[in-house]
Simulated assay, not measured.
Amino acid sequence: MGAIITSAMVLSACVTNVEEGNPEGWEAIVPAEVPEISALVPDEIAARGELTMGTNPPFAPFEFKDSDGSIIGMEVDLARAAAGVLGLELRPVEQDFAMILPAVSASTLDFGGSGFTDTEERRENYDFINFLYAGVQWAQQPGDNIDPDNACGLSVAVQRTTVSETDDVRPKSEDCIAQGKEPIEVLSYDSSDTAATALVLGRADAFSADSPITAWAVERSEGRMELTGEMFQAAPYGYAFTKNSELGYAFAQALQYLIESGDYADVLAQWNIEEGLLDQALINEAPIPAATDYLNP
């Protein structure tokens, strides 16, 4: 893996975690506190004055590090705007992706924000405050003719434990075996940029990731990658909170405020995300219920 990262930095910083910073024309969008919404924040968190968000850069444009090592990205910006509505500061906390949700359960993190797809399985233990719809998208080297629906015998790079691995590539590989064909060689990496770099260097035949991630990597690959096939498995993204928590409910109301004010669309537009936006805040793909129904199920 070390050789891959080093080579990638020589090839192009654009498919690694090395970025100059925010997009051209970017500006911070942090609304003032809205008292009737901030009043919903649990007292101990309000007294602390900050929200801790577990995240796993690099997963650009959702979250990654700039040249100074600060964690930035669309998902960070949106969470920071919601925190502003709640009268709080946002503190992103870098964590291994697979450990974020357990940390939320253990209350060592307030919530998780790391490109989480809101799935039925995850909903069994967490509530997701949805903020975007997107799907899975594959990429290939230019000129290849790879079909994501006919990839038996190929090698595909993914970020470990993401939906691309668990719900896309591994099930397809199992289907190949069931058909008596060669399985897909699943190349699992700790980060999406390393997986993309495996494709750039020819270590993998294809790269599977969430559609905004793949599009971002292709755009910055200087022609070394291209999209292949259509986006599929469209699903909601969400910030992960413990189930039926006061904080999750407050955050959902803050997001609803951002949608109504236009700040939500403005934050996403700065990262060139203009599709899959919501017209109302959702919890597990459902409109925000009354507080009495949500907090006392």
Rank of each mutant, 00 (worst) to 15 (best):
G115R: 03
R122I: 01
L90F: 09
T117H: 03
D77P: 00
K65W: 05
P92A: 07
R91V: 15
I100K: 01
T117F: 11
D66L: 03
V76S: 09
F62C: 07
S105T: 13
T119W: 00
E121H: 00
V93D: 08
S107G: 07
K65N: 07
A81T: 13
E63L: 03
G112Q: 01
L101R: 11
P102A: 06
F64V: 11
D77G: 00
E121I: 05
E75M: 04
V93A: 07
K65Y: 04
G73Q: 03
D77W: 01
D68G: 02
N130Q: 04
S67K: 06
T119V: 10
L109T: 15
G73W: 05
V104L: 05
M99I: 04
F64Q: 08
G73I: 05
T117D: 09
G87N: 06
M74T: 14
N125F: 05
I71W: 03
D127N: 11
S70E: 15
T117R: 05
S67F: 02
S70W: 01
S70Y: 04
D77I: 01
V104D: 02
F62G: 15
N130V: 02
L78E: 13
F128C: 12
T117M: 11
L86A: 12
I129D: 04
S107I: 02
G115Q: 10
A98H: 08
F128H: 15
P102S: 01
A103Y: 04
F97G: 07
L78T: 08
R91N: 14
D110I: 02
